[in-house]
Amino acid sequence: MQERIKEVAARVKELRGILEIGTDEMAKYLNISKDRYERYENGEEDIPASELYEISKKLGVEMSILLTGETPRMHYFTVTRKGKGVSVERRKQYKYQNLAFNFINKKAEPFIVTVEPKPKGTPVHTNSHPGQEFNYVLDGSLRFIIRDQEFVLNEGDSIYFDSSCDHAMVALNEKQARFLAIIM
């Protein structure tokens, strides 16, 4: 896992350098500290999927290039077989699987996200990123938090929201939950 973090970080750093974008500019674009951004590029801290998506937009490349080092090749369609999406281990509480990593010029990033249950009393960390997001619960139940609202989403429930709002999902009933996330 640590090696993969370093590989992604090296690709980000190389592309940023080629495009002559400073670390200050990237940190400001992501609305994070320069120190935190530099930890990303040095492979000292994992880059959250939402921020990696924003970095790919800023660098003008597909997110899959940063993840795999390979250029997407499909123009008209791409098929991703069950369990064969590119795994993105971005945050401890979530496991992402990119379902359209090989398609060029995507207008959205579709993921299957797996959320592991947390021990009771574990603090919930929210996330935010520019754009909009659609989530559809495939298995299990999630406590969905957005701004000051909380509610439960069960299998078959969905939500569409402004992803610039702080949000988080927590698996309920001490069971893993999975959902389809489409980030636009």
Score class of each variant (00 low, 15 high):
residue 130 P to M: 08
residue 101 F to M: 14
residue 20 E to R: 14
residue 114 T to H: 08
residue 28 K to T: 10
residue 183 I to F: 11
residue 110 P to L: 13
residue 124 V to I: 15
residue 56 S to L: 10
residue 97 Q to I: 13
residue 50 S to D: 11
residue 133 E to F: 06
residue 53 Y to G: 06
residue 103 F to L: 15
residue 119 P to C: 05
residue 27 A to E: 14
residue 40 Y to R: 02
residue 49 A to S: 11
residue 130 P to K: 15
residue 54 E to Q: 15
residue 76 Y to K: 05
residue 6 K to S: 05
residue 142 L to S: 04
residue 177 A to Q: 03
residue 47 I to S: 07
residue 149 Q to P: 00
residue 171 A to W: 05
residue 9 A to K: 00
residue 8 V to Q: 04
residue 141 S to G: 05
residue 25 E to V: 15
residue 156 G to D: 15
residue 87 S to E: 08
residue 53 Y to V: 02
residue 150 E to L: 02
residue 58 K to T: 08
residue 96 Y to I: 00
residue 88 V to P: 04
residue 63 M to H: 01
residue 161 F to V: 05
residue 123 P to Y: 11
residue 80 T to V: 09
residue 1 M to H: 03
residue 158 S to A: 15
residue 137 V to K: 05
residue 162 D to L: 04
residue 121 G to M: 10
residue 177 A to F: 02
residue 147 R to V: 01
residue 48 P to I: 12
residue 132 Q to G: 03
residue 77 F to E: 12
residue 109 E to W: 10
residue 87 S to I: 04
residue 58 K to N: 04
residue 94 Y to D: 14
residue 169 M to F: 15
residue 108 A to C: 12
residue 18 I to E: 14
residue 164 S to C: 07
residue 34 K to I: 12
residue 147 R to I: 01
residue 127 N to C: 06
residue 19 L to A: 09
residue 6 K to Q: 10
residue 4 R to Y: 07
residue 183 I to G: 09
residue 97 Q to W: 06
residue 75 H to W: 00
residue 116 E to H: 14
residue 71 T to V: 06
residue 117 P to H: 13
residue 27 A to W: 04
residue 164 S to L: 09
residue 103 F to P: 14
residue 32 I to G: 01
residue 25 E to L: 14
residue 166 D to G: 07
residue 153 L to P: 01
residue 49 A to P: 03
residue 16 R to V: 01
residue 4 R to G: 00
residue 123 P to Q: 08
residue 7 E to L: 12
residue 23 T to G: 04
residue 49 A to Q: 15
residue 121 G to F: 02
residue 119 P to L: 10
residue 134 F to S: 14
residue 145 I to A: 07
residue 143 R to L: 14
residue 139 D to V: 11
residue 37 Y to L: 15
residue 108 A to T: 09
residue 21 I to V: 10
residue 40 Y to F: 14
residue 160 Y to P: 06
residue 78 T to Y: 00
residue 9 A to P: 02
residue 83 G to L: 09
residue 5 I to M: 02
residue 142 L to Y: 03
residue 35 D to K: 08
residue 165 C to Y: 04
residue 40 Y to G: 07
residue 181 A to M: 13
residue 180 L to D: 13
residue 2 Q to V: 07
residue 6 K to D: 09
residue 11 R to P: 01
residue 168 A to R: 13
residue 108 A to S: 15
residue 85 G to C: 09
residue 33 S to V: 07
residue 118 K to V: 11
residue 166 D to W: 07
residue 24 D to R: 13
residue 183 I to Q: 11
residue 167 H to G: 11
residue 7 E to S: 05
residue 150 E to P: 02
residue 108 A to G: 06
residue 131 G to C: 13
residue 89 E to M: 10
residue 117 P to E: 12
residue 87 S to M: 07
residue 2 Q to C: 00
residue 18 I to A: 03
residue 177 A to S: 15
residue 89 E to A: 11
